[in-house]
Measured scan of single mutants.
Amino acid sequence: SEFSSRSGYGEYVQQTLQPGMRVRMLDDYEEISAGDEGEFRQSNNGIPPVQVFWQSTGRTYWVHWHMLEILGP
């Protein structure tokens, strides 16, 4: 990996993601499973900070930056 740390990767995702971009989950996290795909909606200063609309659940759920792989527009 070109990223030395999880936080470095998270910063990359945070700087790159734009609303509407497709993402894939890298880790299991509460209701969301690794491999689930969705659409980035928004972020804020909460914890976790990233709101994604997940195809698997049909609704939005908040996750962490480093848990997401960017699939593209």
Rank of each mutant, 00 (worst) to 15 (best):
E69V: 00
P49K: 04
R6P: 14
W54E: 07
I32T: 01
W62V: 04
D36N: 04
R24T: 06
W65A: 04
F40R: 08
Q51A: 06
R41F: 07
L68E: 01
S7H: 09
I70E: 11
Y9T: 04
G38D: 05
V63W: 00
L17F: 10
Y29V: 10
Q42T: 11
Y61E: 14
R22S: 05
Y12W: 14
L26V: 08
I47C: 15
F3R: 10
T57S: 10
M25C: 03
T16A: 15
R6F: 11
P19G: 03
E37M: 04
S43P: 00
F3K: 07
Y61H: 14
S4R: 09
S43V: 09
T57F: 01
L17T: 01
L68H: 03
V63I: 01
S4D: 07
I47Q: 12
T57G: 09
L71W: 03
Q51F: 05
V63R: 03
D28M: 06
N45G: 08
F53N: 05
D36M: 09
Q51E: 09
N44E: 07
E2L: 12
V13N: 09
R6V: 14
T16P: 01
Y9V: 00
W62S: 15
D27I: 15
M25W: 06
A34K: 15
P73V: 05
T16I: 08
D36T: 05
S4V: 12
P49E: 11
I70A: 02
G72N: 14
E39W: 10
Y29C: 00
I32V: 12
L26T: 10
Q55C: 05
L17K: 00
S4K: 09
W62D: 15
W54V: 04
N45D: 08
P19Y: 07
D36A: 08
G8T: 10
E39M: 08
E2Q: 06
G46A: 14
A34I: 08
Q51D: 03
P49T: 00
D28Q: 06
M21Y: 05
M21D: 15
Q55G: 08
G20N: 04
L68D: 08
Q15N: 10
E37A: 01
P73I: 05
V63L: 01
L26R: 10
G20I: 00
M67Y: 08
P73A: 11
Q55F: 13
H66T: 02
Q18R: 11
Q55I: 15
S43K: 07
R24L: 01
V13R: 03
G72W: 14
G8W: 08
I32A: 14
L68A: 02
G38P: 09
L17A: 04
P19E: 07
E37Y: 05
W62T: 03
E69R: 05
Q55W: 14
F3Y: 10
G46S: 14
P48F: 03
S56T: 06
R59M: 11
M67L: 06
S4I: 11
H64S: 01
V63G: 00
V13K: 03
F3N: 09
L17S: 06
D28K: 03
Q42S: 13
D36C: 08
I47H: 14
P48E: 04
V52P: 10
Q42D: 10
I32K: 10
